[in-house]
Simulated assay, not measured.
Amino acid sequence: MGKKRVTSFDVAKRAGVSRSVVSAVLNDTPGIGVGADTREAVLEAIRELNYHVDAGARSMKTGRSMTLAAYGDTRHPLFIRLLEGMQQECELSGYHILLCSPRPKGNAGGRAELLELYHQRKIDGIVTLDHTSYRDEEWASRVSSAGVPYVSVEGYAEVPGVYSILADYSGSVETALGYLMREGTAAQPGPVYAEVYHEAAADNWAERNRRDAYIGWCKAHGMKPVIVRIKEYGGEWAECLQGLAGDHGQPYAPLLVNWSSAIPELYRTAHQLGLRIGEDVRIMAADNTIQGHRLSLPSLSCVEIPYVSMGEEAVRCVLQQMSGGKQAGQTEKIWLPAVLRPGESA
């Protein structure tokens, strides 16, 4: 038989106080004054009896589970970094995280289960990591109708009425170009922008923002924009690199790539062509999905989309919704700047 669970009644009896006083000490209940000696007696009884708060009972009393759902693909490195930020912020707020992942095709469940968990009071809010094209208005409507505190990371950028944590992709390109073309580097032609794409990928707001920022930067600096579209894993890097070569021995044009996931193939092609990265050709990435600044050789210069900070901000956004949200002047769209990671490639 299991050992009998210690209750707040046992703590009150050991400390010689009422259960309401024990509750006031545990919850810092406003309006109930507890003297220092009484508080210490209660805390001493808690330690002696090894008492732990009954989370289920507290949930019934407060209406809160002290748990947030994090929805995303656990195989994706960006989701793991998002979770790192969420965990840090949840620890500060006394919250736990419940992991929920998309189901394989053909299986029921997925996002619908999140709403069931909320109605069952097993979670207090939802954070989803979405792709930048995500804008499922039916899901957003169901969340709104249920009154669930919810935030999408990277989704719903152009949809009003949904809280989103978003990366400033325009600013990330401007930061990258500022570093790539910084003072002190050798005289060089204007930068070329390589836009890697999936075969079936939509032209989403993030890629448009990056492209427009590149074009705007070039025009502001009196340079001609040159955009090269590269199919991911399409074997087109050789032609791209050869096109960077200047006439009559002039230096290669610097290259800014939108996705760092394309960098391994680009590095391999440069090696096959006998080009030294960082010397013959200078390369930079407008994201850091693969942690290229640490895992590539030479180390990749890049700007990093701040997924850890986005996870922290997502938790704060959900908790603020629980505390009043729009009535408290909460902003629907929160944009976070990218972080420069200098390396040896540029």
Results as ranks from 00 to 15, higher is better:
4 K>P: 12
5 R>D: 06
5 R>F: 14
7 T>R: 13
12 A>Q: 02
13 K>W: 01
14 R>Q: 01
14 R>I: 06
15 A>N: 06
15 A>L: 01
16 G>C: 13
17 V>P: 05
18 S>F: 06
21 V>P: 01
21 V>T: 03
23 S>N: 14
23 S>E: 00
28 D>L: 03
29 T>W: 13
30 P>E: 15
32 I>V: 03
33 G>T: 15
39 R>A: 01
39 R>F: 14
40 E>F: 02
40 E>T: 07
41 A>G: 04
41 A>P: 00
47 R>Y: 13
51 Y>F: 14
51 Y>Q: 14
54 D>W: 15
56 G>Q: 10
59 S>F: 09
61 K>Y: 11
70 A>L: 14
70 A>E: 09
71 Y>H: 01
71 Y>M: 10
72 G>D: 02
74 T>N: 10
74 T>P: 09
75 R>T: 14
76 H>A: 12
77 P>G: 03
81 R>C: 04
83 L>E: 05
86 M>T: 07
88 Q>W: 05
91 E>P: 03
92 L>K: 14
94 G>D: 12
96 H>C: 15
98 L>W: 03
104 P>H: 13
104 P>I: 12
106 G>C: 09
107 N>E: 13
110 G>T: 01
111 R>G: 09
111 R>Y: 14
118 Y>P: 11
119 H>V: 02
119 H>C: 01
122 K>E: 08
122 K>M: 08
123 I>H: 10
127 V>E: 06
132 T>K: 09
139 W>H: 00
139 W>R: 02
142 R>Q: 09
143 V>R: 07
146 A>K: 11
147 G>H: 08
147 G>K: 11
150 Y>P: 08
153 V>R: 05
161 G>A: 12
161 G>Y: 12
163 Y>C: 15
165 I>D: 05
167 A>N: 13
169 Y>Q: 00
174 E>W: 05
176 A>Y: 11
177 L>A: 06
179 Y>F: 12
181 M>C: 09
182 R>F: 04
183 E>R: 13
186 A>S: 05
192 V>R: 10
193 Y>V: 03
195 E>V: 10
198 H>L: 13
199 E>I: 04
203 D>K: 11
205 W>V: 13
205 W>T: 08
207 E>F: 00
210 R>E: 05
221 H>C: 15
221 H>L: 13
222 G>N: 09
225 P>N: 02
231 K>N: 00
235 G>N: 12
240 C>T: 02
241 L>Q: 10
241 L>A: 02
243 G>W: 01
246 G>C: 08
254 P>L: 03
262 A>Q: 12
264 P>I: 09
264 P>S: 08
266 L>H: 12
267 Y>R: 06
268 R>M: 14
271 H>T: 00
272 Q>A: 06
277 I>V: 11
278 G>W: 15
282 R>I: 09
285 A>M: 11
294 R>W: 04
296 S>H: 01
299 S>N: 15
307 Y>Q: 04
307 Y>H: 10
308 V>S: 01
309 S>E: 08
310 M>S: 06
310 M>Y: 06
313 E>A: 08
320 Q>V: 06
321 Q>K: 09
321 Q>L: 15
328 A>V: 12
329 G>E: 02
330 Q>W: 02
330 Q>T: 07
331 T>M: 13
338 A>R: 09
340 L>T: 01
341 R>L: 12
343 G>Q: 04
346 A>R: 06
